[in-house]
Amino acid sequence: MAEQKKTLVVTRFDPDRDQTPTTREYEIPVEADWKVLDALNYIKAQVDPTLSHRWSCRMAVCGSCGMNVNGEPKLTCKQPLSAYGERVEVAPLANFPVIRDLVVEMDGFMERLKQVKPWIIEAKEEAKREGTNRQSHAELMDFKQFSMCINCMLCYAACPVVANEPDYLGPAALALGHRYNQDTRDHGGVERNQILRDDGGVFSCSYANECSEVCPKGVDPAGAIQQAKLNNVLDWAKRFVVPRRKPRAPTAAAQSDEPGRG
């Protein structure tokens, strides 16, 4: 079998030397089952050790290796190289400042995650107790999908609102806030909703749906944001008429032998 070659056109930028990003072309031998990341790692090890990119798990769960491939945000450890022709352009994720080469700055993203209070806020009477909560499979399914985000930031690179509105919390952070609001173990919905509906929150979303289309984990942030919009409207109305749900009693874990479900 003839050796197959591809040319990777890679964005290079070193702030110590460069005013603006440039590209460099690497023609390399490739293997049929390579992902885009394999090609970058080949370049780094065999051709040009000065290339900087982030990666670790190479199994699509650590979220480190998001990049723009031929203009679209992709998780490079999962994206097959065979999906592209002879020339493949690899650039840093859009909508982020670039630190160097393919490495983008994440400070803003990390700050936004924290802003939505992504932790269980317990009712005061529950804060010190022991044991586990009960949660039905249906209750788990109300938020499970939104807990699958690996923070790869592809949705930020794809989102037209992120590109234009500097204060927008963005798809992943908003979906995460909604994930905690949907969790029966959480009692922080009222304070979290204030953040979600504030400036830069869910109502900034124009429902372009790009985030859900590029998500490599099927999280559907756009769906989460639409649900959160609705909940916020209902929450606002409900506060005047319905008393808050009582917390469930704690239980010991796993007493039954029934099959567990996802």
Partner: peptide, 20 residues
Amino acid sequence: AQLERWGCPFSRNEDGSVAT
């Protein structure tokens, strides 16, 4: 159990307890 109370989405038995 502490991790469960911190929100880890453990899979569940039919009765809502944590599955093993």
